[in-house]
Design a binder for these strands. Structure first.
Lengths: 142, 142
DNA sequence: TAATATTCTATTGATATCAACCAATTGAGG
DNA sequence: CCTCAATTGGTTGATATCAATAGAATATTA
């Protein structure tokens, strides 16, 4: 069966499949680690992107995260509801929004960082010396 | 601000963030490519996993995909509704299900494979010689 | 064999993800 | 100015994702 052989090849080599699988495993892992602080791995990443000296608008954030704008809209909601971020109309361009962390958001971010540091060090240990290569490869894709 | 510096470090180095970003970009890319055949990149992967000489049960499939079992339950629904797969109670263990492709599923899979081949070759070209290293790194994680 | 534990899947509720479409605003030409 | 195009987010509908929980069937053990 050539169809079956092709399937074997794809299961072994498809980078998209491998990436989704790794993304799921990593998200679960960091979700678990961050759960005591009430945020997910995705929310942690988003808080980091929003932690800037000056407020950002949504476009650049979505682009940095390689995420659809409407996905970002959705992802902001629980963070705003929980008081971790602020969403304000940009006075200079009333179509846009200015996103920033609240004091509470910075507090949560700071606390979550220590968890991240520990968990990520352990992850890099498991990956071995290839961690930099892996990052580089992922950056090429996204 | 040390908090800001820590954020920069995380944005640059967090493997979880890089993986999610790459996963989103790749999913969009293959979703686009496969759209003419009416399936997504995730459904394509799932069809490949289900394309075996003998039916499989859900547990091993979920494990192979590094996916929660309940996620798999959800993912099977549109495929079954569209007639691409069959879900049957395992007569030897009536808790379990036996999953298999229908003729229609095999037909769709075969057609989608040619798209995958083209798109994946282009992707590997873009990634360069690191494609094998990237795969290896992703496999270590998942 | 009966009671208990384990395994397998489904369901629910919350968030994540994207495409398609829409509304409001701004910008560019005329 | 005024029209029209482009930009910026939001909304909706479908699928994806997981934790928690529940139900059914099997396996274990007393």
């Amino acid at each position: 069966m050539e169809l079956f052989e092709a399937t074997i090849h794809i299961r072994d080599r498809c980078i998209c499949l491998h990436a989704q699988r790794a993304a799921r495993a990593l998200a679960r892992r960091f979700d678990d680690a961050l759960r005591p602080h009430g945020i997910t791995s995705g929310q942690f990443s988003l808080l980091n992107v929003l932690n800037r000296p000056e407020p950002v608008s949504m476009g650049p954030v979505a682009k940095f995260l390689a995420m659809d704008r409407s996905t970002l809209t959705a992802n902001l909601k629980p963070l705003e509801r929980n008081g971790l971020i602020r969403i304000e109309v940009d006075p200079d361009d009333r179509r846009g929004r200015k996103l920033s962390l609240t004091a509470e958001g910075r507090k949560t971010l700071r606390a979550a960082m220590s968890i991240w540091k520990k968990e990520h060090a352990e992850l890099e240990r498991e990956i071995g010396i290839d961690a930099d290569l892996l990052r580089a490869g992922l950056r090429t894709i996204a």
